[in-house]
Computed example of a mutant assay.
Amino acid sequence: MNLLQQSRARLATLGLALASAFAALLGGCTSTPLPPPAKPVTAPVVIAPPTGLDKMSQAVTPYAYRRDAASHLYSKNTDRIYLGKMPPLLYAIGVLQVEVDGRGRVTSTSWMRAPTHAPEVIAEIERTVRAAAPYPAPVRMGRVTYTDTWLWHRSGTFQLDTLTEGQY
């Protein structure tokens, strides 16, 4: 055998050895799928209310909270809500901002548009807002300042713009 033939024989032997090693490696692989990894157990997110609160609001914006606040005010003043559509000419219209802390207490009020021609209405709205506290606690916001428009009839009944039945 000459040198060229010996080199070819060694190369063929090396190729067979590599092919055998590769086949052995593949033979060790499994075709059975692995079970899915265990999912971590997560408890549902529960926002605990501050101690002693009866009502909570899950609102995440002041606009969403005002519906909860208006419903609360209506429930505390059922005999003072004007039922049905309001007449076209109202005695007073006022726009009030109310700040509520994390426990539902009113911390401040400020008029954006006060019905200055009817100071008794201003005083009565402020008294009504404060008397209705505590409001639903804004647990997802911590505290909130919301705005609502008071539609006041000369009979002393009212509707809030958030829950109004409209006007004729």
Results as ranks from 00 to 15, higher is better:
98 V>S: 00
123 A>H: 13
55 K>P: 01
40 P>M: 07
141 M>C: 01
122 I>C: 03
114 A>L: 09
108 S>I: 06
22 F>V: 14
57 S>W: 07
133 A>F: 06
31 S>D: 07
49 P>S: 11
107 T>D: 07
85 K>T: 13
112 M>W: 10
149 T>M: 11
37 P>L: 07
136 P>C: 01
84 G>L: 08
106 V>I: 15
151 L>N: 05
113 R>K: 14
144 V>F: 03
55 K>Y: 13
36 P>M: 00
88 P>F: 01
38 A>Q: 11
21 A>G: 13
2 N>L: 03
130 R>V: 06
75 S>K: 09
52 G>R: 08
85 K>F: 03
68 D>H: 05
134 P>T: 02
133 A>I: 03
61 T>H: 03
84 G>E: 07
81 I>R: 12
64 A>P: 02
38 A>C: 02
76 K>E: 13
110 S>I: 13
28 G>V: 12
1 M>L: 11
22 F>A: 15
146 Y>K: 00
99 E>Y: 09
111 W>Q: 11
30 T>K: 08
140 R>Q: 07
129 V>T: 10
13 T>F: 11
140 R>H: 05
63 Y>T: 13
7 S>Y: 09
31 S>W: 09
48 A>L: 14
44 P>W: 07
83 L>A: 12
6 Q>D: 04
84 G>M: 04
59 A>I: 11
136 P>Q: 00
136 P>W: 00
23 A>V: 12
46 V>P: 02
64 A>M: 09
34 L>C: 05
155 S>H: 04
59 A>Y: 10
128 T>R: 05
72 H>C: 12
86 M>Y: 08
60 V>E: 15
148 D>H: 00
145 T>V: 10
132 A>Y: 03
62 P>E: 12
95 V>L: 13
95 V>S: 10
99 E>T: 15
21 A>W: 09
43 A>F: 08
157 T>S: 01
25 L>W: 14
31 S>E: 11
162 T>L: 06
60 V>P: 01
76 K>M: 15
113 R>H: 15
162 T>A: 13
88 P>V: 09
5 Q>T: 09
69 A>I: 07
66 R>E: 12
86 M>P: 09
39 K>A: 11
23 A>W: 08
147 T>Q: 13
107 T>E: 09
111 W>I: 14
4 L>D: 12
114 A>S: 15
85 K>S: 14
150 W>C: 02
22 F>C: 14
77 N>H: 13
34 L>T: 05
146 Y>M: 06
124 E>H: 10
76 K>Q: 15
116 T>K: 11
143 R>I: 00
91 Y>T: 05
